[in-house]
Design a binder for these strands. Structure first.
Length: 442
RNA sequence: GACCCCGUCGUCCAGCGGUUAGGACACAGGCCUUUCAAGCCUGUAACACGGGUUCGAUCCCCGUCGGGGUCGCCA
């Protein structure tokens, strides 16, 4: 006999005084998952009542990064600064009723409106922490309207949440001590408080709260480092939550289906960048090459590369896809097959080009490659292995020097794949260049 | 300091009175192999401590210790 709950209405309410960081993103994500899993509404509200510290460019950035993460909202963005008319009447009503009073005028003669808080004991029913009781002897009177006329945080928050019909307030742990005050506010106003759920904090490796000194923690930084939004969503979902059991790799649909507040942890979690990067690699492996090419484009802007057509990029992505942990690895790994000039890595030269017979080997390899017909992976492998056999050596003796000639590096995908990607002309040109390099050396 | 929260491998999670305490990242070794990755296999590694309750505690209760949060006319 479970009566259907009305669809929930939740909100994410960042203040534009800093970039959106992983902690905020995780809060947004949990709200989003909760709403999407229950046919509810996810509302974006920008808390910009602090006129000094709020910045419009940061509002824009937060909105953009949320969109990048794929957390779409149903209402908003709603800016608190544009709904000033809402707060004052509510405060004045409390004033008239004698529940609130005006502060002593400051030096400029302005006054604040403050709620009188009688000593009481407040119990916060929390969906994550259970019942948290605060002996409210220490609760002080609560500022409603600051003397500059703008609403104070707790008041604005309550008025807005009520006005928007918010049913579940899901937010960071650091707000837990605020909650008794907000419940007092709801009661004073004669409103029914929403359900509350507080999320544990995200810490840095030294167990202190995650901050700038732990490196890049803004979403913008993750995007620029080549982290895929799907990977970040999956990783973040597992910080302070799990579906139970051993499942880790889950797409959005699965997360939406599985998420519940009951399984949210009460323990702060350390952000593990390495695991994020690992997970990102898994998502890159499974991504469609065309999608990766699209995601790669903005990252190539800063490399000074010659333009590369999509088709060519896609071939490179297919060749290298399994080796990428982040998109940012791509320029270094793919340069040899997408750009004209290659540099010879000194270690590669020392390791694979030091032998006396390398020029001769390359010459023979060149001949074999020149004669390959058709110029395709299978035929090239057969021909080069045949050459090794005739010379009585293992394949590597030929392949290593050739790899350096083709890529300039000591590590790369398979040589035969590279040959067929580069084509006969480029392959031969690179071998010739290597021969010239070696001739000059002696 | 006061109030509140938390405490399982280095890290993220599983466990919800009886388990050889499980998975993942990282780390180590192996397989594969033309290199490096990837992939596959194996291994190292944890219930903070002390009291209870119980036939039996990682799990329930109390304390200690440790970590964190909040104490603004910031949000």
């Amino acid at each position: 006999m479970n009566r259907p709950e009305p669809p929930p209405r939740v909100r994410f309410a960042p203040s534009p005084t800093g970039s959106l960081h992983v902690g905020g993103a995780r809060t947004a994500l949990f709200n989003w998952l909760f709403a999407r899993g229950r046919g509810g509404a996810f509302i974006l509200r920008i808390e910009d009542t602090d006129r000094q510290r709020s910045r419009e460019d940061l509002s824009r950035e937060i909105i953009e990064e949320l969109a990048w993460l794929g957390l779409d909202w149903d209402e908003g963005p709603i800016f608190q600064s544009r709904r000033a008319g809402l707060y004052l009447p509510a405060a004045e009503e409390l004033l008239e009723r004698g529940a609130a009073y005006r502060s002593e005028p400051d030096t400029e003669g302005k006054t604040a409106i403050i709620l009188r808080v009688p000593p009481a004991e407040i119990t916060v029913p929390d969906r994550v922490y259970g019942a948290v009781t605060v002996s409210a002897a220490e609760l002080k009177d609560i500022v409603l309207i600051k003397s500059d006329g703008s609403p104070a945080y707790n008041f604005a928050c309550v008025v807005d949440d009520h006005d928007l019909g918010i049913t579940h307030v899901i937010r960071g742990d650091d707000h837990l001590p605020n909650t008794p005050k907000q419940i007092i506010l709801y009661r004073a106003l004669g409103w029914e408080p929403p359900a509350f759920a507080h999320l544990p904090l995200i810490l840095g490796p030294d167990k202190s709260p995650l901050s700038k000194r732990h490196g890049a923690t803004s979403l913008k930084a993750f995007r620029e480092a080549g982290i895929l939004p799907d990977a970040l969503v999956n990783y973040l979902s597992l910080l302070g939550w799990s579906p139970g059991g051993d499942r880790e790799l889950m797409n959005r649909d699965e997360l939406v289906r599985e998420f519940s507040l009951e399984k949210v942890s009460r323990k702060a979690a350390v952000f593990d960048h390495q695991k994020l990067v690992w997970m990102n690699g898994r998502y890159i492996q499974e991504a469609a090459p065309a999608d990766l090419v699209r995601a790669l484009r903005p990252l190539l802007a800063g490399t000074g590369w010659e333009p590369v057509p999509d088709g060519r990029m896609e071939e490179a992505v297919i060749l290298l896809g399994h080796r990428l942990k982040t998109l940012a690895d791509f320029p270094d790994l793919a340069g040899f097959c997408l750009q004209g000039e290659i540099d010879y890595n000194p270690e590669a030269v020392a390791k694979y080009w030091s032998g006396e017979d390398v020029p001769e080997i390359l010459a023979e390899v060149r001949g074999t490659i020149a004669a390959a017909d058709p110029f395709a992976r299978e035929e090239l492998e057969a021909a080069l292995r045949g050459l090794a056999e005739r010379r009585g050596v293992k394949g590597g003796v030929l392949l290593h020097p050739l790899r350096v000639a083709l890529t300039g590096r000591k590590d790369s995908p398979g040589v035969f794949e590279i040959l067929s990607l580069l084509g006969r002309e480029t392959s031969l040109a690179r071998i010739d260049r290597a021969a010239a390099f070696l001739a000059r050396r002696t």
